[in-house]
Protein backbone atom coordinates (compact mmCIF):
# COMPACT_ATOMS: atom_id res chain seq x y z
CA UNK A 1 0.00 0.00 0.00
CA UNK A 2 1.23 3.44 -0.83
CA UNK A 3 -0.30 6.57 0.62
CA UNK A 4 1.98 9.22 -0.76
CA UNK A 5 4.29 9.64 -3.68
CA UNK A 6 7.26 10.26 -1.44
CA UNK A 7 8.00 6.75 -0.30
CA UNK A 8 11.46 5.37 -0.89
CA UNK A 9 12.46 1.75 -0.57
CA UNK A 10 15.58 1.63 1.55
CA UNK A 11 16.35 -1.87 2.62
CA UNK A 12 18.16 -4.22 0.32
CA UNK A 13 18.52 -7.68 1.73
CA UNK A 14 20.33 -9.33 -1.15
CA UNK A 15 23.93 -9.99 -0.31
CA UNK A 16 26.64 -9.93 -2.92
CA UNK A 17 29.28 -12.62 -2.98
CA UNK A 18 31.74 -10.35 -1.23
CA UNK A 19 29.24 -9.66 1.51
CA UNK A 20 28.57 -13.33 1.89
CA UNK A 21 32.20 -14.01 2.61
CA UNK A 22 32.17 -12.16 5.96
CA UNK A 23 35.76 -11.08 5.71
CA UNK A 24 35.59 -7.94 3.53
CA UNK A 25 33.01 -6.33 5.79
CA UNK A 26 35.01 -7.28 8.85
CA UNK A 27 38.13 -5.84 7.30
CA UNK A 28 36.32 -2.58 6.55
CA UNK A 29 35.14 -2.47 10.15
CA UNK A 30 38.62 -3.13 11.44
CA UNK A 31 39.89 -0.32 9.24
CA UNK A 32 37.40 2.11 10.75
CA UNK A 33 38.20 1.17 14.30
CA UNK A 34 41.96 1.31 13.84
CA UNK A 35 41.56 4.76 12.33
CA UNK A 36 39.84 5.85 15.51
CA UNK A 37 42.49 4.14 17.58
CA UNK A 38 45.01 6.69 16.39
CA UNK A 39 42.70 9.66 16.18
CA UNK A 40 42.46 12.44 18.70
CA UNK A 41 40.46 11.65 21.81
CA UNK A 42 37.47 13.78 22.62
CA UNK A 43 37.36 13.01 26.32
CA UNK A 44 37.05 15.92 28.68
CA UNK A 45 39.16 15.24 31.78
CA UNK A 46 36.25 16.39 33.86
CA UNK A 47 37.30 17.35 37.34
CA UNK A 48 40.36 19.12 35.99
CA UNK A 49 38.89 20.44 32.76
CA UNK A 50 35.42 21.88 32.88
CA UNK A 51 33.28 22.39 29.87
CA UNK A 52 31.63 25.73 29.18
CA UNK A 53 27.98 25.04 29.69
CA UNK A 54 26.55 27.67 27.39
CA UNK A 55 25.19 31.08 28.31
CA UNK A 56 21.71 29.88 29.19
CA UNK A 57 22.48 26.69 31.04
CA UNK A 58 20.20 26.06 33.98
CA UNK A 59 22.39 25.27 36.96
CA UNK A 60 21.95 26.02 40.64
CA UNK A 61 19.68 28.71 41.98
CA UNK A 62 20.76 32.06 43.24
CA UNK A 63 18.81 34.87 44.88
CA UNK A 64 20.18 38.10 43.52
CA UNK A 65 20.87 41.29 45.38
CA UNK A 66 20.81 44.64 43.69
CA UNK A 67 23.76 46.97 43.29
CA UNK A 68 23.40 48.24 46.85
CA UNK A 69 23.38 44.77 48.28
CA UNK A 70 19.66 44.66 49.00
CA UNK A 71 17.74 41.49 48.39
CA UNK A 72 15.49 41.77 45.39
CA UNK A 73 12.97 39.10 46.31
CA UNK A 74 9.63 40.41 47.35
CA UNK A 75 8.10 37.06 48.26
CA UNK A 76 5.33 37.32 45.70
CA UNK A 77 5.30 33.55 45.38
CA UNK A 78 5.16 33.38 41.60
CA UNK A 79 8.18 31.11 41.49
CA UNK A 80 6.57 28.71 43.92
CA UNK A 81 3.44 28.62 41.82
CA UNK A 82 5.38 28.14 38.63
CA UNK A 83 7.42 25.31 40.08
CA UNK A 84 6.12 22.01 38.69
CA UNK A 85 8.06 20.08 41.30
CA UNK A 86 6.75 22.13 44.22
CA UNK A 87 10.30 22.50 45.39
CA UNK A 88 10.16 26.16 46.40
CA UNK A 89 8.59 27.33 49.60
CA UNK A 90 8.77 30.70 51.25
CA UNK A 91 7.48 32.73 54.14
CA UNK A 92 6.85 36.39 53.50
CA UNK A 93 7.51 39.12 56.03
CA UNK A 94 6.99 42.88 56.12
CA UNK A 95 10.05 45.04 56.02
CA UNK A 96 10.63 46.82 59.33
CA UNK A 97 11.92 50.32 59.68
CA UNK A 98 15.68 50.45 59.37
CA UNK A 99 15.89 47.43 57.10
CA UNK A 100 15.81 49.41 53.87
CA UNK A 101 19.44 48.62 53.27
CA UNK A 102 18.67 44.94 53.46
CA UNK A 103 15.54 44.52 51.35
CA UNK A 104 14.56 46.44 48.31
CA UNK A 105 10.80 46.03 48.55
CA UNK A 106 8.40 46.42 51.42
CA UNK A 107 7.85 42.73 51.59
CA UNK A 108 10.60 40.18 51.64
CA UNK A 109 11.08 36.48 52.02
CA UNK A 110 11.94 35.69 55.59
CA UNK A 111 12.35 32.06 54.63
CA UNK A 112 13.14 30.97 51.11
CA UNK A 113 13.84 27.33 50.68
CA UNK A 114 14.52 25.21 47.63
CA UNK A 115 14.51 21.47 47.90
CA UNK A 116 17.44 20.74 45.64
CA UNK A 117 16.57 17.09 45.26
CA UNK A 118 13.04 17.86 44.12
CA UNK A 119 14.06 20.63 41.78
CA UNK A 120 14.11 19.66 38.14
CA UNK A 121 15.97 22.75 36.90
CA UNK A 122 13.32 23.59 34.33
CA UNK A 123 13.90 27.33 34.65
CA UNK A 124 10.24 28.21 35.06
CA UNK A 125 10.93 30.03 38.35
CA UNK A 126 13.47 32.25 36.67
CA UNK A 127 10.97 33.04 33.98
CA UNK A 128 8.22 33.66 36.49
CA UNK A 129 10.12 36.05 38.70
CA UNK A 130 8.95 39.62 38.12
CA UNK A 131 11.67 41.13 40.28
CA UNK A 132 14.80 39.63 38.71
CA UNK A 133 15.50 37.95 41.99
CA UNK A 134 15.82 34.24 41.31
CA UNK A 135 18.16 32.96 38.65
CA UNK A 136 19.64 29.66 37.70
CA UNK A 137 23.37 30.05 37.46
CA UNK A 138 24.92 29.08 34.14
CA UNK A 139 28.29 28.23 35.62
CA UNK A 140 27.65 26.03 38.63
CA UNK A 141 25.73 22.92 39.50
CA UNK A 142 24.23 21.87 42.72
CA UNK A 143 26.84 19.67 44.39
CA UNK A 144 26.10 16.09 45.28
CA UNK A 145 24.71 15.30 48.70
CA UNK A 146 25.63 12.57 51.07
CA UNK A 147 22.88 13.23 53.53
CA UNK A 148 19.19 13.91 53.26
CA UNK A 149 19.53 16.81 55.71
CA UNK A 150 21.60 18.89 53.34
CA UNK A 151 19.18 19.04 50.48
CA UNK A 152 16.93 21.91 51.52
CA UNK A 153 18.81 25.06 50.78
CA UNK A 154 17.80 28.11 52.70
CA UNK A 155 18.66 31.72 52.19
CA UNK A 156 22.12 31.26 53.62
CA UNK A 157 23.14 29.25 50.58
CA UNK A 158 20.93 30.84 48.00
CA UNK A 159 21.42 34.55 48.50
CA UNK A 160 24.23 36.03 46.51
CA UNK A 161 27.50 36.84 48.19
CA UNK A 162 28.31 40.50 47.56
CA UNK A 163 32.03 39.77 47.56
CA UNK A 164 31.69 37.18 44.88
CA UNK A 165 28.85 38.35 42.73
CA UNK A 166 27.32 36.13 40.10
CA UNK A 167 27.86 37.72 36.73
CA UNK A 168 26.62 36.98 33.26
CA UNK A 169 27.23 38.50 29.90
CA UNK A 170 23.57 39.09 29.27
CA UNK A 171 20.66 38.90 31.61
CA UNK A 172 17.60 38.95 29.43
CA UNK A 173 16.78 37.17 26.21
CA UNK A 174 16.76 40.48 24.39
CA UNK A 175 20.17 41.42 25.68
CA UNK A 176 21.55 38.08 24.78
CA UNK A 177 20.12 38.33 21.30
CA UNK A 178 21.52 41.80 20.74
CA UNK A 179 24.90 40.63 21.91
CA UNK A 180 24.74 37.64 19.66
CA UNK A 181 23.85 39.72 16.62
CA UNK A 182 26.75 42.05 17.36
CA UNK A 183 29.12 39.14 17.60
CA UNK A 184 27.78 37.61 14.42
CA UNK A 185 28.38 40.87 12.56
CA UNK A 186 31.90 41.03 13.86
CA UNK A 187 31.28 44.28 15.72
CA UNK A 188 33.35 44.91 18.80
CA UNK A 189 31.37 43.91 21.83
CA UNK A 190 33.71 44.34 24.78
CA UNK A 191 31.13 42.81 27.04
CA UNK A 192 32.39 41.86 30.41
CA UNK A 193 30.28 39.67 32.60
CA UNK A 194 28.37 41.89 34.97
CA UNK A 195 25.86 41.76 37.73
CA UNK A 196 22.16 42.31 37.09
CA UNK A 197 21.52 45.94 36.20
Amino acid sequence: MQLTNRSKQVSNKEMTLMERAYLPAIATGLGITIKHFFSKKVTIQYPEVKRYLGPVFRGRHILKRDADGRERCTACGLCAVACPAEAISMVAAEREKGEENLYREEKYAAVYEVNMLRCIFCGLCEEACPKQAVYLRHDEFVPVFTDRDQVIWGKDLLVEDMNNRYTREAWTKEEALALDIKRANGEPTNVTPRAVP
Binding site: L53, G54, P55, V56, F57, R58, I120, F121, C122, G123, L124, E127, L136, H138, K173, A176, L177, D180, I181, R183, A184
Partner: peptide, 27 residues
Protein backbone atom coordinates in the same frame (compact mmCIF):
# COMPACT_ATOMS: atom_id res chain seq x y z
CA UNK B 1 25.01 21.13 22.90
CA UNK B 2 22.66 22.68 20.40
CA UNK B 3 19.74 22.11 22.75
CA UNK B 4 21.76 23.68 25.50
CA UNK B 5 22.39 26.71 23.39
CA UNK B 6 18.71 27.01 22.56
CA UNK B 7 17.07 26.21 25.86
CA UNK B 8 19.66 25.62 28.55
CA UNK B 9 19.32 21.92 29.21
CA UNK B 10 20.47 18.73 27.59
CA UNK B 11 17.83 16.13 27.86
CA UNK B 12 14.69 17.41 29.49
CA UNK B 13 14.68 20.55 27.48
CA UNK B 14 11.41 22.23 28.42
CA UNK B 15 11.66 23.68 24.96
CA UNK B 16 9.37 26.13 23.30
CA UNK B 17 6.62 28.23 24.76
CA UNK B 18 2.99 28.56 23.94
CA UNK B 19 3.12 30.87 20.94
CA UNK B 20 6.66 30.32 19.79
CA UNK B 21 10.07 29.60 21.18
CA UNK B 22 11.44 30.85 24.44
CA UNK B 23 14.32 32.56 22.71
CA UNK B 24 15.57 33.10 19.22
CA UNK B 25 18.21 30.93 17.67
CA UNK B 26 21.47 32.54 18.65
CA UNK B 27 24.26 32.94 16.18
Amino acid sequence: EIYEEVCGARLTTNMGRLGGMERDLSH
